[in-house]
Amino acid sequence: MSDGIHVRGLRLWAHVGVLDFERAEGQWFELDLRLAVDLSVAGRSDALADTLDYSQLITALQRQARSIRCHTLEHYSDSMLDLVEQLYGPVPVWLELRKCQAPVSGFDGVVAVERQRHGPC
């Protein structure tokens, strides 16, 4: 399937990290995700009911970010994949979750995990 819905650059403040202060104070993360879904029906009908409402997903991810407390990007991204599945069922999904400022001395880059579930996107 080549159709998909993309959400790019979603910034989320979450309490995730191995270090105590990361979980206590929180930090910025950035998310890109792709849901593989046939968009042809909605393309013809122009009806929101014929597609996946990405605003529901964005709102749910923002709510999740406010409440999550965990150590690893892997766990946080797994929670995101679970949330997608709760909202839309087992749709193919790909995501990249980036920690915007990893607390590593002398490192000014970005650390990310890439995950997918339910087949290729």
Rank of each mutant, 00 (worst) to 15 (best):
S2N: 14
S2W: 12
G4W: 08
G4R: 15
I5A: 02
I5W: 12
I5K: 07
I5S: 02
V7G: 00
R8P: 00
L10D: 01
L10H: 08
W13I: 06
H15N: 10
V16P: 03
G17Y: 09
V18M: 08
L19I: 05
D20Y: 06
F21V: 06
F21H: 14
E22L: 11
E22C: 11
R23L: 08
R23C: 04
R23P: 02
R23W: 10
R23D: 01
A24M: 10
G26C: 08
G26Q: 13
G26E: 07
Q27D: 12
F29S: 05
F29G: 06
E30Y: 09
E30M: 12
L31S: 11
D32K: 14
D32E: 12
L33H: 09
R34T: 15
L35G: 03
L35N: 03
V37S: 02
V37P: 00
D38H: 11
G43V: 07
G43F: 07
R44T: 10
R44M: 04
S45N: 01
D46L: 01
D46M: 03
D46I: 03
A47S: 06
L48H: 01
L48D: 02
L48T: 04
T51D: 00
L52T: 05
L52A: 02
L52I: 09
L52H: 02
L52G: 00
L52V: 11
D53H: 14
D53P: 00
D53M: 06
Y54E: 07
L57D: 02
I58H: 07
I58R: 09
A60E: 06
Q62N: 13
Q62T: 15
R63C: 09
Q64D: 10
Q64E: 13
Q64T: 10
A65P: 08
R66A: 15
R66Y: 03
S67I: 15
S67Y: 09
S67L: 14
S67N: 09
I68E: 09
R69Y: 07
H71F: 13
T72N: 02
L73C: 07
E74M: 08
Y76I: 01
S77V: 04
D78E: 12
D78V: 08
S79L: 15
S79Q: 13
L81R: 10
D82F: 01
D82C: 02
L83H: 05
V84G: 00
V84Q: 05
Y88W: 14
G89A: 07
G89M: 12
V91R: 11
W94G: 00
E96S: 15
E96G: 09
L97Q: 05
K99A: 07
K99P: 09
K99E: 04
A102R: 05
A102P: 15
P103Q: 12
P103D: 09
S105K: 14
S105D: 14
G106F: 13
G106H: 12
F107M: 04
D108M: 11
G109T: 05
G109N: 09
V110Y: 05
V110L: 08
V111H: 03
V111W: 01
V111M: 02
A112R: 10
E114I: 14
R115Q: 11
Q116K: 11
H118F: 15
H118I: 05
G119S: 06
